[in-house]
Nucleic acid binder design. Structure first.
Lengths: 220, 220, 220, 220
DNA sequence: AATGAATGAGAATTCATTCAT
DNA sequence: AATGAATGAATTCTCATTCAT
């Protein structure tokens, strides 16, 4: 665990504006890796290159830091996706592929994916944060995908399926892929290739949702 | 100090053998709900109906308890599945369906599903347990499913896909469903129905893997 | 500050019943001498001959310990005094003398006098304890003395004075004497002699409250 | 960075000299209300309207601030009283009344009364300040009152009493009245009226010290 | 085997003090 | 002179672990 003591700087440095972000980034890393309880604030501070006390200038206590980590890293991406869906023209399979790929590029492949792991691991300990997360992220995210499924069905590009359930079946493997990224023990032998995984998934979804070729019965 | 041969004890006192199991069960519940660090041994003992000291008669320390929890709850189911696959006759889609359903019935729907969440959450803190878990469970589990996929391809019942990747795409949603069971915040509105989820998933996999209908080219 | 490490005992000793009292006694000493904030729980524990952690088996936190110290040491003495007043027969001056002497013997001269100093010093920091103390001790104590004054007036043994104010004038010097006992810096030269102080006070009160000799002016 | 000669500053900026006084006043308020340890320098600075750092321009550290608070608020009044006593002509009871009333008007009713409470509360933590305070204030104050008592006895206006003890009996209730002013919890119902208290006290002292009417035995 | 009082190392949190600006 | 961000020593509080009974 290399603690970045990148300081040949003066004993301290005045940079009130950058600090919170640096601390949040450090906290995200450690919370994701170790969980809430096992993360020591000393380490967060050290990783951010400040002293323990400094942390308390910006966050009232450990729990507030945790909440801030969740809060700060969540919202922005959803709006873009919502817009994309609204504007998209083309086959719904294509839309689904684009969305999944975007999701991965913008969240799954970044540190933000850690938040998901964090919420799965800690939701039992922080019911209010969990509720908040569910409302602001999970619900909106599900609605997003559900709209795609509904569009597919409406345009007769997808078989008629239960959109709520189908949505979750779509989401689950992507989420799981995000979680795996933070379960390092998997890296041995045969590491998971996100792109291969997603291509396979998308392929599966495309075929699985496509309307049965009507031509088969036509010839007669 | 009454000297008592254990075999002469009345029935209600022969808890000796049951104790470790009760403790492991209690520990599983709490570790899954709260994580390793946030679980207090007081509570584990209380939930098992014994005193804190008693715990140390059976487990050297907290970490050993954790390892025991993982160890005790993993192995047994895999052998059955391995045998099922070896013996199965019929369409591979049917085999896949059976296996997934069994998996859910025997693991996903039980407390054992908590182990998966636990390993995802704590693998960073217990690399050796993670490695052990990976070897004993993950690898064997993946191999199991992979054999099905390979069988499907070999029998020309499945499209030719990369078995390793396809395996993970199959596993991921089931695992995620297991995790969700332990993230209570989901329970609001619209709870996830495991059976509907799995049926939808199996349907998708069946269609997604099925060999392209050769009939389409027949008419000529 | 000799910390009584009177332990040639085993590493610890099981005596659940005595512990709270020992801890309260130690806490009283230190709170009185240093005040709430300046008292360290380590020291309280050390003075009671136990470890820091043991304190928390009996008191939830520092503030609860403080409250317990105040609560435990106050109430019992008042009941006795109330009864004495009710039964007393004789001149009210004599009753007043007896009460003051008793007060000193049972409280002023003991460790309990420290509570008064404590409440004066800390009432600003613990409004709720202050309120509690006021209701349970101050009010009852004032009522006690006031009843004496009223009796004196009723029996024409005391001049008619405002009982409420007179009561406080009686109480104040005794309280102050109690406070001085805990302001060690006074001990230099000329230490205060509680008995001489109280005798002088009682003498003063006796003469000051006595009904003016009516005979002097009558003869003419 | 505008370079400004302090002497060219507009009137409202020449706070330089006032600063220490403002800080001392703020510190007095908080030390009295909360005690030394529970007073945070942040709050002192905030109450004085400056930043924490500024405090250190005027006082080396918290303890020096405390000492300065005590030092600055003690001395001045005693000289006047000493002179008053030297010059006074009239009955000693009158002198005593005047002195007590002055004492209250000039000290008891002002913030200075807080110093007494502070010294009672903190003398254990600051033995040297206590000694200093004792020598400069307590001793001189006692001497002052003692001189009155001695004058009364010498002029045959007071009964012969032990002047040292009598002095303390006089002082104690006034001091206690000062302390009560800073123990807010008393304010409920029935607040103490300083003037009524002092009148009652003075009345008591006057009668209590007066020489027994020699006339009683004269009638013949 | 079981208990639970006692321990003490370790983590969170506070706040007097410093010092670059 | 004034500021206030940064520091870290000191203190409260927690909880895994021990061990006499």
């Amino acid at each position: 665990m290399p603690i970045a003591d990148a300081r040949t700087k003066p004993r301290w440095e005045r940079r009130k504006d950058a600090r919170p972000q640096e601390l949040l980034a450090a906290a995200l890393d450690l919370f994701v890796e170790r969980g809430f309880a096992a993360t020591r604030l000393d380490e967060v501070a050290a990783l951010a290159g400040v002293s323990k006390g400094t942390l308390y200038l910006y966050f009232e206590n450990k729990e507030e830091l945790f909440k801030a980590v969740v809060r700060e890293n969540m919202v922005p991406q959803l709006a873009d996706a919502e817009e994309l869906i609204a504007r998209f023209e083309g086959h719904t399979s294509e839309l689904l592929r684009t969305c999944i790929k975007n999701w991965w590029a913008r969240i799954g492949a970044t540190k933000l994916s850690g938040i998901s792991k964090l919420m799965i691991a800690e939701s039992g300990n922080f019911p209010d944060v969990a509720r908040f997360y569910h409302e602001e992220v999970v619900s909106r995210g599900e609605a997003l995908i559900r709209r795609i499924v509904e569009r597919g069905i409406a345009l007769d590009e997808f078989r008629p399926v239960d959109p709520v359930t189908a949505t979750r079946v779509i989401i689950a493997p992507v989420l799981m892929l995000m979680m795996w990224r933070h379960s390092l023990h998997y890296c041995h032998l045969d590491p998971i290739e996100p792109d291969a995984f997603l291509d396979c998934l998308i392929d599966l979804l495309t075929r699985g949702f496509e309307t049965p070729a009507p031509s088969t019965s036509l010839p007669e």
